[in-house]
Amino acid sequence: MNRSLKQPMKSIFVPVIPGGIMTILIFYLDYFHFELVEKFLLFAAFLIVPLVILLLRYDAKNTQQRVVYVLMQWFQYPAALLTLFSVMSNKMWGFEGTAIPGMLSLGWLLFTLLLGVYGLTTIVIAKGKAAEIAIGAGLVYFFIGGMWFTLYQYQVELFNANVATHALSSVHFHFSSAIVPIFIGALGRIMAKKSWYPWVVAIDIIGPLLIAFGMIFSKPIEYVGVALFACNIVVYTAYLLAYLRKNAFNMKVSFFLGLSSLAFYTVVVISIFYPLLKNMYSLTILDFIPIYGALHAFGFVLCGLIGWVYMVDSNQGKKIGKENRWVGTSL
């Protein structure tokens, strides 16, 4: 029995190993002459999205959702490779200024469309369940991130925004906009019903849109969106830490989810002390961007996803254990 329960824990991350290796190579090999924002986009394509897929569950009775889920599993890695080739053709292969980088980026756009379709079906099937709506919205935001990436690779200036803004918008939707609703939805699946939870979900869905709109048209709107979004993450992390403290979970679950929350609060502390640090050490915002990006992407997002995948796997193991004990008793 114990061996059968431990087996899924050992094998659950096998699908993301190739993407993890590619991510390490992209960040640490000098061969890849990419901008930092492009490295984070590839990090999302090769590692973040596969981890998100591990978190998803589909209704066995819904043929459309089941088919889309299988297609996502099949095409994720080929789409990630096309994303890599798109960036390489622009930065390394001498096709900058041509349509080739944009054409190659369409592979990722079509894959994120699958994520968006899956998200919409999740919202429809949810029938008002806030947790599932949050997860569905997060998946739809991946598609918006895919659109921004394609605009970036085609070098299209939209809404009088420069191309660099498109890249930042794509990163925003691949990480914060998509991941935070998924995290809050995952929390909603396991927590007791709270009257305030639907409001958190609603703000979490609206916040990314305000940020994206503000980045292009209005800084005050962006600040409002950031403030709402940050408050939502504070609510999520505070409740999550309290929940982990009160309930006995696998050590890996508590470690990674706790580390994810700690990374977020570290970003908050650095942001508070940024003016002081800037004056003391003559630093600029460009010096802090890699720190913010690493803490958010590798700390909050990556550790959080690993923790939630372990949580899902642990819950499945408990269900299998209960079923086997019931069978043994009945026999």
Rank of each mutant, 00 (worst) to 15 (best):
P8H: 09
K10F: 02
K10M: 10
F13Y: 10
G20Q: 03
I21E: 03
M22V: 12
M22R: 09
I24P: 03
L25S: 04
I26V: 03
Y28T: 15
E35M: 06
E35H: 10
V37R: 11
V37A: 14
K39P: 15
F40C: 02
L42N: 09
L42K: 06
A44D: 10
A45C: 06
A45L: 00
A45K: 00
L47F: 05
I48H: 13
I48E: 14
V49Q: 15
V49F: 05
L55D: 02
L56A: 09
R57Y: 14
Y58R: 13
A60F: 05
K61A: 12
T63P: 05
M72D: 04
F75L: 12
F75M: 04
Q76R: 00
Y77A: 03
P78W: 01
A79R: 03
L82E: 04
T83H: 09
F85L: 10
E96D: 12
G97L: 09
I100V: 12
L106C: 11
W108F: 07
W108Q: 11
L109R: 05
L109Y: 07
L110V: 14
L110G: 11
L113W: 02
L114W: 09
G116W: 08
G116Y: 11
Y118V: 03
Y118Q: 13
G119W: 11
I125W: 02
K127P: 08
E132T: 10
E132R: 03
E132A: 13
I135M: 14
L139S: 07
Y141T: 00
Y141V: 06
F143T: 14
G145V: 08
W148G: 08
L151Q: 06
Y154H: 14
V156Y: 13
L158S: 06
F159D: 08
N162F: 08
V163S: 02
A164G: 08
T165V: 15
H174E: 06
H174P: 07
F175W: 11
S177W: 01
V180K: 08
I184F: 00
L187N: 11
G188H: 13
R189P: 11
W196N: 04
V200S: 13
I205T: 01
I206L: 15
G207I: 04
P208T: 05
P208C: 01
L209H: 07
F213Y: 03
G214A: 06
P220I: 11
V226T: 04
A227S: 07
A227T: 11
L228M: 15
A230E: 13
C231M: 11
C231R: 13
V235T: 10
V235L: 03
T237G: 05
Y239V: 13
A242S: 14
Y243G: 05
A248V: 10
M251H: 04
M251Y: 14
V253Y: 09
G258E: 10
L259K: 10
Y265T: 07
T266L: 14
I270R: 10
F273M: 08
Y274S: 15
N279C: 06
M280P: 00
M280Q: 14
T284I: 01
L286E: 12
L286P: 03
L286W: 04
A294P: 13
A297Q: 13
C303Y: 04
G304K: 08
Y310M: 10
D313L: 00
N315A: 15
G317N: 03
G321Y: 08
T329N: 06
